[in-house]
Design a protein around this nucleic acid. Sequence first.
DNA 1: CTTACTGCAAAGGATTTGCAGTTAA
DNA 2: TTAACTGCAAATCCTTTGCAGTAAG
Lengths: 142, 142
Amino acid sequence: MLDRVSGTLRQHGYRITPQRKAVLETIARAGGYLAPSEVYERVRRKHPSIGLATVYRTLDVLKSLGVICEILAAGDVRTYTLGAPDHHHHLICSGCGRVTDFITRGLEELQQRLELESGFAIEGHVLEFIGRCPDCRSGSMG
Amino acid sequence: MLDRVSGTLRQHGYRITPQRKAVLETIARAGGYLAPSEVYERVRRKHPSIGLATVYRTLDVLKSLGVICEILAAGDVRTYTLGAPDHHHHLICSGCGRVTDFITRGLEELQQRLELESGFAIEGHVLEFIGRCPDCRSGSMG
DNA sequence: CTTACTGCAAAGGATTTGCAGTTAA
DNA sequence: TTAACTGCAAATCCTTTGCAGTAAG
C-alpha cells in the first residue's frame, strides 16, 4: 500500500517524507475515521516533533490524490480514512461518532433521474445515515 | 407560517422577538439556503443593530425546533432553509454553490437493511448529490 | 544543488460565550 | 416584575499562512 502511494506521490511531483509516511500509516492502521487532531496525536507518539500544520498539509495532499477520503460528518468534524470517496457510504453514530461504511447500489438510477430532471451534470454524492450504534444503544453513554 | 412558528416558540418557552421574526422572515423569503453570515447581512438591511451572535443563537433555536433545516454542504459551510430535515435531499452545484432540493423514496428500504445488518438505530440521513447546474455548465464560471 | 517540505508562531475565519443592559410576557 | 433575550467584545476552535531552516531527489 505504501509502495503504491509512494508511486502516486512521486508521479505528481511530491516527495516522500517521514512525516507523510507516518500520517498515511496512522490512517491506514486506524481502520476507522480520524479527525486531523486525532491523526496529529497518534503520529506524535512515534514522531513527536511533527507539527499540526504538517498534518493538515499532508491530509490535503493525500486527499487531492484520492489516497484518503474525507467525510463531511455532522458536527462540523472532518475525518479521514483510507480510500477514494464515492465507493462507499457512511453510517455515523450520534453517540460516539464512530463511522461505519456500507456499500449500496441503486443510487445510479436516482442519479440518472436527477440529471434528466435537473439538468445538472452530477459529479458525486454523499449518503450518510445517522443513528446509534449497538454499543451506544446498550451502554450508558447517553 | 409566522403564526405557526410563533406558537412553536411559545410552546417551548421561547419569546417572540423582532430579531427572531426578522431572521425567520429572511430565511423564508430567501427560498434557498443561506449561510449565517448571509442571514446576518440580509437581516441588517431592515434591522441594522442586530448582532451576529443573535443570528447564530436564533438559528440554533429554530433548528432545534425543526423550523429550519441545516445542510452540511461541502466546503464546511452551514446553510439553512425553511423546513424540517429528512423530508428532502440536496443537489448542490459545485460551481455556484446553489442548492436544489429533491424528494426521493426507497431510502426506507435501505435504512431497514442497514438497521438489520449493523444493529444501529437509525435516526436520520443525509443524501446529497454534487454536480454542475445548467447555468454553470453553459456559463463561463469555470 | 534545488526546491519542496517542515516546524513554529502568527494570522484568519467561523462560532461561542460572558456580561450588563433591555424587553417580552 | 423577572427571566429570557440582545448587542458587544472577547474568547475559542479549527485551519491556513509566512518564514527561515532542513532534507528529498
